[in-house]
Amino acid sequence: MNERLIPAIAQDWRTGEVLMLAYMNDEALAKTQETGKAHYWSRSRNKIWLKGESSGHFQLVREIRVDCDEDAILLLIEQEGGACHTGYRSCFYRTIDGRVVGEKVFDPHDVY
Rank of each mutant, 00 (worst) to 15 (best):
K51Q: 06
I77D: 01
L29T: 02
E103R: 13
R62H: 12
A30M: 10
F58P: 00
D97L: 06
D69W: 14
T95L: 14
D107W: 04
D26M: 11
V111G: 11
G56A: 05
A8L: 12
S55R: 06
C91F: 07
R99P: 05
D107I: 09
I9L: 13
F58Y: 15
E17W: 11
W49S: 09
T35K: 11
D71V: 05
R62M: 00
T95I: 12
V66E: 13
V100S: 04
L75Q: 04
K51S: 04
Y40G: 04
G52T: 01
A83P: 03
D110E: 15
D67A: 15
Y40Q: 06
G81C: 06
G98R: 15
V18H: 02
D107Q: 07
T95G: 00
R14M: 00
V100A: 03
T32S: 02
F106Q: 06
G87Q: 03
Y93L: 04
L74D: 13
G102C: 07
S42Y: 01
M20G: 05
V100P: 02
Y23A: 06
K47S: 02
I77Q: 02
R43V: 07
I64Q: 03
V105T: 02
T15H: 13
E78R: 09
A28G: 05
E63M: 10
A10R: 04
E80H: 14
D107K: 09
A38L: 13
C84Y: 02
T35F: 10
A72V: 05
D26A: 09
N2V: 07
Q59M: 10
K31R: 15
N2W: 10
D97K: 14
G98H: 14
I6F: 14
N2P: 08
W49A: 07
L19K: 03
Q59H: 08
V101M: 05
T95V: 01
T35C: 08
A10D: 01
G98S: 09
C84T: 05
V66W: 15
E70A: 12
E80R: 11
Q33V: 13
T35M: 11
R89Q: 05
D12R: 05
W41H: 12
R45H: 05
G82D: 02
W41D: 08
C84D: 02
R89D: 03
D67W: 07
G81D: 07
D67R: 14
L60R: 08
A30L: 07
Y88Q: 01
K47M: 04
L75V: 08
A72N: 12
A8S: 14
F58K: 00
K104L: 03
W41S: 11
L60P: 06
A38F: 10
C91Q: 10
G82C: 01
K51C: 02
V66K: 14
G56F: 00
A30P: 10
I64A: 08
K104R: 10
Y93S: 01
D110M: 06
G36P: 13
T86K: 09
Y23G: 00
A22P: 15
P7K: 15
R62N: 08
E103L: 12
S42L: 01
G82W: 02
S54L: 08
A83G: 06
L19Q: 01
S42I: 00
G52W: 00
D26T: 12
P108H: 12
